[in-house]
Every structure is written in structure tokens, then in C-alpha cells.
Design a protein around this nucleic acid. Structure first.
Length: 376
RNA sequence: GGGAGAGUUCCCGAGUGGCCAAAGGGGGCAGACUGUAAAUCUGUUGUCGAUGACUUCAGUGGUUCGAAUCCACUCUCUCCCA
């Protein structure tokens, strides 16, 4: 359950209590799609990085190693060695990202496996069953993440269907949670708001799913190619209609600046592949902006990735060394940079919470928003 | 000493008369990445006063309207025989 501790404008400081641990919000979830954070970072490292919640993916784990297998091995938390809360994404986003291979109907979606091309059918019930087998703390509703741009007609039909799917998810989850051999009888369900960039569809959809009394509410289908200002506009339109006593999760977002902006607009929870993916591609996030360690200018730079960072990587290694590791194709380059970036994101959230606790979020925002968006 | 082959742009390597500033790799330089089919993708990589000009394919000289490509000699390297 979510408890609002403090509010400053729309920005919220809260606490989300689950059977697998309490999450201090605003929080960032570290993305471990197939059960591991890419870049050779294990659950073993996550404590050092102040990770609170790990996110795993239904579709990927269903394909490999198989959700039944994960269940036999004690569930996703035991399997990956991470004993904190885990949120599993529903596979809805994969329907979108595997766009060329899909066929969407009322019952669900048929699409081709990216591993071997075999046909997979997934609907609300299938997604809930898989997530139940994975035994995550939080299951996400099975939704359709519509491409941008989309026509009004398609967006309307799609988000109405997503609302109907949520009702089915809720029903199936209640059934699964009451089964005797379920891994987590207290598995939570988050509903997902859709409606593309159409404010009226977004609001209407939000009002409708708010009545279903989910354990949390997510805003999905943003940061999929629309201008950033559009995203902020949609959050502002939807937020007043989100239940105050439920946690709010902005899916797949974002840059450090995006997070500051979204917290300002009342969002509590985030996840994004950016800190890990960009790290693998040589980019380190810092309080002064984002730097590309591949650049020749770091060849003789003995400073740490971020002079203001207390992470294990910045305590020991120089930009010059990490630059060299990237040039030499050493996997340590990725590991170190991913670790730094995840620490940076988690630490950024901690600073945001500190500022909210002190009633000084607006000042914190003003102080950092410009620098965080820079490229250095 | 005799015979055979080879020298191409930062590197490897294609090119055997004009469509060649020269394929393709690699490397270099930069960019992208937002619920991860992503250790991936894109651009660029002779010089300049730049929709054109100039210099370059070991060196020198030659044949030709035109040469990285043909000829002669020189240099260097590799292999085989002594």
C-alpha cells in the first residue's frame, strides 16, 4: 500500500509497502529485463548501488528460461538472488517494440518470438499467469502501447480495449492469488493509462481505470517518440484524475531531467533502460550532465566519471582508465559505467526525496534541471 | 647466384586503360539511444578558397586523348632452387 508522507505542489514524497520490502518514493527501478541488469551487474551489486526495486520482463522470461521453470526454481526473486521487491512488466511493450511481427485482437496478441520466430499468443490472462509463476511483487496489467503518431480513432479503440483487458487482468489475478500453490498470494496489480497524446482519451481512460481499485497506476505509452513537452502536457492532464492514495508510475522514463520534471508533476515511480544502455554505449550521467567516455578528450583525464559522486566506481577509477577500457573492448568498461549510472540514478532519487522531506523540492529542481540536461 | 611473386589511402585488402579520391573490412573521429530483438545503429575518415580544383596507388622515365591499371629500369619485401 502507498502512503503519502509529504506533498509540495503536485510533487509527492511517499512510501510503498509490499510483502517484499518498503520502497521510499519517488523511486527508480533498475531494469533487469531477462533477470539480469545488462552490463554484468548482479543482484550482488545492487545493494551497493542503493537499488530499491528491480524490474523484470514477462515476455523475455516466458521465452527463456520459461515461467514454469522460474516457478520451479522458487520464483524470480530467489532465482536472481534479489530479495527485494520486483516489478514484472506485462509484455505489452514488447507487442509494441516487436511491431512488425504482431496481430492484435480482442482476446489478445499473436506475435513472433524474437528468439526463434515461433508464434506466441499473449492476452491478459496469459500475462497474469506468467507473472504469477514468476512470483513478482508487482504485476503490470497487459496493455497496448500504441505507436506515435497514431490516429484518434485507433488510439480510442486501443485504449478502450486496454481498459477491458485491465478488468480481465484483475479478475485473473484475484483467481491466481487465491490458488494454493501460488508463489505470492499478495501479488499486486498496477493498471496502465493509455490514450496516446490525446488529452481527452487519456483523462477518460484514467477515470475509467481508477474505478477498478488497482494497487497502483501507471502512465504508459509515453516517451515513444513524441516531443518531451507533449509528455509533460499529458502527465499534467492525467495527474489530477489519478487516485491520491495510490502510487503513480511513469513507465519507461527517462533522462535525469525527465525525472525531475515528472516528480514536479506528481509521479512517484520510474524505470528506464537509459542508465544501463547508454552506459554500455559509453555514456556516463553526472551532476554536470552526460559525458561520452569514448571521446578522445578523456585519454589523459585522471578525474573520476563524476567529481561529485560517491559511488564505488568513482572512488577508484579514472575517466582515462574507463576510456581505455571502452577502446580496448573490455567488458569491465560497461560494468563500471553501468554501475556508476545506476548509482547515479538511485542517488538522484534519494536527493529528490531529501529535498521533498525538507520541503525544498522546487529549489532543488531549479538548482539542477539545467545541468542535468547538458552534454559535456 | 638462379627462378617466381608482390609493393594501393592510418592498417588489411579489392581494383588490371576512362563510370577511381579508388569496393569491403579494421582502426580513428563524432552522433543516436527513454516499460531493452540494442556490447547496437548512423554519419564521417587525402587536401583546399570545395555542385569545382589539386595531390595520391614504391621510385623514375615512357606509351596513350586518358594510367593504380600497359612498357622500361631502379629500390624494397616474400617464397622456391643453389
Amino acid at each position: 500500500m502507498y502512503q503519502l508522507l509529504k506533498q509540495e505542489g503536485a510533487a509527492r514524497r511517499g512510501e510503498f509497502v509490499t510483502v517484499h520490502g518498503t520502497v521510499q518514493t519517488p523511486a527508480f527501478m533498475n531494469v533487469a529485463t531477462a533477470g539480469a541488469i545488462k552490463g554484468a551487474v548482479s543482484a550482488y551489486d545492487l545493494k551497493d548501488l542503493y537499488c530499491q526495486v528491480q524490474l523484470c520482463n514477462t515476455y523475455h522470461l516466458h521465452l527463456r528460461p520459461g515461467d514454469e521453470t522460474v516457478k520451479k526454481l522458487g520464483g524470480i526473486r530467489k532465482f536472481t538472488g534479489w530479495d527485494g521487491p520486483v516489478l514484472t512488466d506485462s509484455g505489452g511493450f514488447q507487442v509494441f517494440s516487436l511491431a512488425k511481427l504482431r496481430n492484435i485482437k480482442e482476446e489478445g496478441v499473436t506475435f513472433a518470438s524474437h528468439v526463434d520466430g515461433h508464434k506466441i499468443f499473449m492476452g491478459p490472462e496469459e500475462s497474469m499467469r506468467i507473472q504469477s509463476n514468476l512470483g513478482s511483487t508487482i504485476a503490470m496489467a497487459f496493455d497496448e502501447c500504441v505507436e506515435n503518431p497514431a490516429t484518434y480513432e485507433y488510439a480510442k479503440a486501443s485504449c478502450e480495449r486496454t481498459a477491458r483487458w485491465l478488468e480481465r487482468c484483475k479478475k485473473e489475478m484475484a483467481r491466481l492469488n487465491s490458488l494454493e500453490d501460488t508463489l505470492n498470494p499478495h501479488q499486486l496489480l498496477f493498471g496502465i493509462n493509455q490514450g496516446c497524446t490525446f488529452e481527452d482519451l487519456r483523462v477518460e481512460h484514467m477515470k475509467r481505470i481508477a474505478q477498478l481499485d488497482c494497487d497502483g497506476y501507471a502512465i504508459g505509452g509515453l516517451a515513444v517518440g513524441e516531443p518531451t513537452e507533449e509528455m509533460y502536457r499529458i502527465i499534467e492532464a492525467v495527474e489530477p484524475h489519478m487516485p491520491k492514495d495510490k502510487i503513480r508510475y511513469l513507465m519507461g522514463v527517462g533522462t535525469p531531467a525527465n525525472i525531475l520534471e515528472a516528480v514536479l508533476r506528481g509521479v512517484d515511480l520510474f524505470d528506464c533502460v537509459m542508465p544501463s544502455r547508454n552506459a554500455r554505449h559509453g555514456h556516463a550521467f553526472t551532476w554536470q550532465g552526460c559525458r561520452n567516455l569514448l571521446n578522445a578528450k578523456y585519454e589523459l583525464d585522471e578525474a573520476p566519471l563524476d567529481e561529485d559522486c560517491q559511488c564505488p566506481v568513482c572512488q577508484k577509477f579514472s575517466r582515462a582508465y574507463i576510456h581505455h577500457l571502452f577502446k580496448a573492448g573490455e567488458m569491465l568498461a560497461m560494468r563500471l559505467t553501468v554501475m556508476h549510472n545506476l548509482y547515479f540514478y538511485n542517488h538522484l532519487m534519494e536527493k529528490i526525496r531529501d529535498a521533498l522531506d525538507a520541503g525544498a523540492y522546487r529549489a532543488f529542481y531549479e538548482q539542477h534541471i539545467e545541468a542535468l540536461g547538458r552534454r559535456i
